[in-house]
Design a protein around this nucleic acid. Structure first.
Lengths: 210, 210
DNA sequence: ATATTGAATATTTAAAAGAATTGGTCAAAT
DNA sequence: ATTTGACCAATTCTTTTAAATATTCAATAT
């Protein structure tokens, strides 16, 4: 009997952990990091505040966990959509679309990551960098495929992918910066960014062409 | 005698205006907009504060005038260096170098322009947009030359130039954002940005190639 | 031992009040 | 028309206080 409990408890515990994660995700995505309190998250689940601290050492860790959770979801989603695609340009387009989809969906969640004026907490920085690395690897992989199939000619994959990512990210930054007046960019504004990114990507890819 | 004075005075007045402009430029370039006071500028010249307001309606106008002054200087400088250059890529490289040179030199002057979280005052916005337009026109002109000489193939000059500018500016933003901890980016950091911009520009140009 | 809580404490943020600095005006003088 | 010193108004900077929120912990239940 005791053994049975021992085997089951961890799973139940994990379930609670996930519940917290999901609940926090909803609140963070809707209200952002700073406008979400631990008390609210606890209340949503009828847990005590203290229980949150049993599963996560502090608010920032919880936020990081949520961020990581969403990023992973996104990565898997992209991987899935990417599977049947062979053409390089098409692959890039699909990635851009998916990413924009997630940014739209979780804007307030990511927003804290973007704006953080002060120096980012150690572990948040790690999550961000890790995410960037994954994107980087993905672009590298696509570039290599493109080279293998003879579509592209590239001397330095690592650097080229980084340049590509930077100019796309920068483009997003610069447009977002322009529309800072409203809290939340409109659909049209998101679409405008996406369109620019796509066009820019096309020229870039052609520039790498054989 | 009176007539003589009447003819000379305006020039002297203008000279004072320029003196104020130069003095303000030095202060703004060194300490930035917010850390420069009208009193200081006046003191530098042994003028009274009120005199500044005789020549410029308010501080913001003075700042705009200085900004415009420097931007014009830069434009002329670039035009000068550009004259003997015919090759498209070379032209772009020279522009990038010159611009970075000015950003380095007048970093604190421009900084206010970049960071302005709140909505920019009407006339400052005008100066910024005007500057962007000029850069835009310049890139368009270079692209057209490139097309004429057969180096490039472009369907939409206006849009292509805008994409190009955005991705360069964004690249600068994104790197500057990363090094926000220190007040002033180091020479190495400036150089890093410039290098990225150059490489990015090269790929972009090749992507427009015939 | 693990999971959970209510209540207590420690930090952060927000608001208010007051002082100091700085931007901007004006009547008078040159 | 140009220039100034003295004055006022607006803004920023400090200090204080109060409120909100994060975080801890001893005690309890499982």
């Amino acid at each position: 009997m005791n053994k049975l409990i021992l085997l089951i408890m961890p799973k139940s515990a994990d379930e609670k952990r996930v519940k917290i994660l999901e609940s926090a995700k909803r609140r963070f995505a809707h209200y952002g990091m700073s406008k979400t309190t631990m008390a609210e998250i606890a209340k949503d689940l009828s847990f005590s505040k203290a229980l949150l601290y049993y599963y996560f050492p502090d608010k920032n860790s919880l936020y990081c966990a949520v961020l990581d959770y969403v990023i992973t979801e996104q990565e898997e989603d992209i991987l899935e959509v990417l599977r049947p695609i062979t053409n390089t340009e098409r692959a890039i387009m699909v990635i851009l679309e998916k990413r924009m989809e997630y940014i739209k969906k979780y804007y307030n969640l990511f927003e804290y990551t973007f704006n953080t004026g002060k120096d980012v907490p150690e572990d948040l920085g790690k999550v961000i960098i890790c995410s960037f690395e994954k994107q980087h690897e993905q672009i590298i992989s696509i570039l290599k495929n493109g080279a293998k199939s003879g579509e592209l000619v590239i001397d330095n994959y690592e650097e080229t992918a980084r340049l590509f990512l930077f100019s796309l990210m920068g483009m997003r930054l610069i447009v977002i910066k322009d529309i800072k007046h409203s809290f939340f960019p409109t659909k049209e504004e998101f679409d405008a960014i996406l369109e620019m990114q796509k066009k820019m990507a096309k020229i870039f890819i052609k520039g790498l062409g054989a």
